[in-house]
Nucleic acid binder design. Structure first.
Lengths: 335, 335
DNA sequence: ACGGACTGCGCAAACGATTGCATTCAATTA
DNA sequence: TAATTGAATGCAATCGTTTGCGCAGTCCGT
């Protein structure tokens, strides 16, 4: 700008005004300046702009904290956030917590320092203190949780309808003739685990089945599934179906029961939760609850941007629930 | 800082120096200021710092451009970049090009404006002009390519050893008794496609097999694989093995030949490339070339940071090749 | 007692933009 | 003719830091 001003024999202020199309600069001068700027491909220094506007205008950088990156669901969510954000003129600063509380705190501080306009976060598994989040809110940085929300904080959030998703899935198992349905869930201190379990329980009740504690296990990965499933199948009264908290676990079950000589879905039905890459790769293909990560991501970004731009009030915590969809494939019988 | 200065009755300059531990401020004053700052949890405004230093110091933001996010290999690379970058004090601005040239150009401009210290990029499939990249380099923003590199530009890059990876995989197929090996590759305008083909060709030569053009097809996704594979298997002289350019395609082949009643690996061997989630989910599990995306990402970040910090010269294009590893599983016979 | 060296600190100019207010000059009005 | 008005532009402060330079004051040696 200084150069332009010098070349054209005007003041920097005039250049600034001309470039922002201020009517207080005469038409000819304005156009001359604009053209000159274009020809010498001038573009404004965002840093300086931000510094000048730091009091009034937030930046256009959204911080995103992900527990891990190589993960279908989180990738989908990130994808959704990216789409929504970029189409509305925001960009993303992405960091992964590695499921570590310490790292999460560091990241929050770094993002605060880097003046993000808001943060979209899914907590690390071992996060049990929330001061770092509260710290952000009091610093005026809006926060939106996804997937793993923080029940202690009344913050905006978007989650998947774990309860209904599981309920429908288990109902489907029952309707296709299953009577003893095992449930492999995650440890109950996470909301999502609890909600899915409740969905399972209520589906059983709805159809008059009783809940057998022996059929409920904590297991949310393939290795564990392969370890504990044989014993399940050797019970005197073995399960005729499995509901797993994610596809990975379901695949573990599938591989075990196939290896043991059972036929899927006729001897044993299996249902997962995610509908990621894996679901269409196994044989038979996996019946599973579509988690719609992209949609979750979009909603989260939408809320955050709403908060930033003031169309949503920061006092009211916006809570959105994304509906799931049951995708029936080969590991369950058809109705 | 101004507040601190006022409260403690010193000048802002003194505060600044005290906070940066300058020896030109007396010990007592320095400590008093530091403590006061800590107690009132002051932290410096990065924007202002950056503005001040914009001439000399680059920012610590690395721009990352990904063609897509919901993709095992790209997720792994992003993961690698994140790990390396964050451990060295950099953060990531991530954008996805959606395989679109237009979007890629937009992103480059936006990142330039946002003053990233460098960019790590894999080109969109339809990118054929490179002015936007050259534009960045002339603007002094270092560039590192990964996966899909730009042969026209002599830029730093890190790629996987596609040639040797494929060569080894095809050799393995031959050594386990396969004689007619089909090759499903991507369109040859991408370097990676060409290198993999060359590896295939040379492996055949090495073992004295002749290359049959009928066995070479352009096919890099599951749908296409499912469409064209039946015809391949109906040839009078059908292939006894398939090498596919990625796991997804290999899975497509697997599902078709199983459905047609062939046994894998005895009737037909199959080998993929990636070693992503899918590889351990299908039945039998997929023999594939481990692509080590995380390592690629780390190397890319390492180069970029080297360039930024001046340990690597911008004049010399650093080219790194990440070794692959053949993971032998159930879709090929064992040696 | 005076020059030099050193210590500890403040002034003010930068970084690159924006913007309220003052200024200039010409045209219009009384 | 003098005053009023309006348009077009410039001045200078500001955003929050950093930093070269200069200015006091103290201490020492001669």
């Amino acid at each position: 700008m200084k150069d332009i001003a010098r070349e054209l024999g005007v003041s920097v202020a005039t250049v600034s005004r001309a470039l922002s199309d201020s009517p207080s600069i005469s038409r000819e001068r304005r156009q001359a300046i604009q053209q000159f700027a274009r020809e010498h491909n001038y573009f404004p220094n965002v840093i300086a702009e931000q510094l000048r506007h730091s009091r009034r205008n937030p930046s256009r950088a959204i911080g995103v904290i992900v527990p891990e990156l190589v993960h279908y669901y989180f990738s989908s969510i990130l994808d959704g956030i990216e789409s929504e954000a970029s189409s509305r003129g925001y960009h993303l600063i992405v960091a992964k917590s590695n499921e570590s509380y310490e790292r999460e705190v560091q990241i929050c501080e770094a993002m605060l320092k880097n003046k993000v306009c808001g943060i979209i976060v899914s907590q690390a598994k071992d996060t049990e203190r929330y001061d770092h989040f509260e710290h952000l809110t009091t610093a005026g940085v809006p926060l939106v949780f996804y997937d793993r929300i923080c029940p202690a904080l009344n913050a905006s959030r978007v989650v998947v309808d774990d309860y209904m998703g599981t309920m429908n899935a288990v109902s489907h198992l029952i309707e296709t003739g299953c009577k003893r349905i095992a449930f492999y869930g995650a440890s109950m201190n996470m909301m999502i685990a609890k909600n899915r379990f409740n969905g399972y329980r209520d589906a059983l009740y709805k159809y008059g089945l009783t809940l057998d504690e022996d059929l409920v296990r904590i297991c949310d990965n393939r290795a564990d599934a392969e370890r504990i499933t044989p014993a399940m199948m050797h019970m005197e009264n073995r399960p005729d179906a499995f509901f797993a908290v994610n596809d990975e676990t379901a695949i573990g079950i599938l591989s075990v029961v196939k290896r043991m000589g059972y036929t899927v879905p006729d001897d044993v039905s299996i249902c997962g939760f995610t509908n990621g890459f894996r679901a269409t790769v196994c044989d038979p293909m996996l019946t599973t609850v579509e988690q719609r990560g992209t949609q979750v991501g979009k909603e989260a970004a939408d809320i955050l941007i709403g908060l930033v731009e003031g169309t949503l009030s920061p006092d009211h915590a916006e809570k959105r629930i994304v509906k799931t969809r049951l995708v029936i494939r080969g590991t369950t019988r058809h109705p």
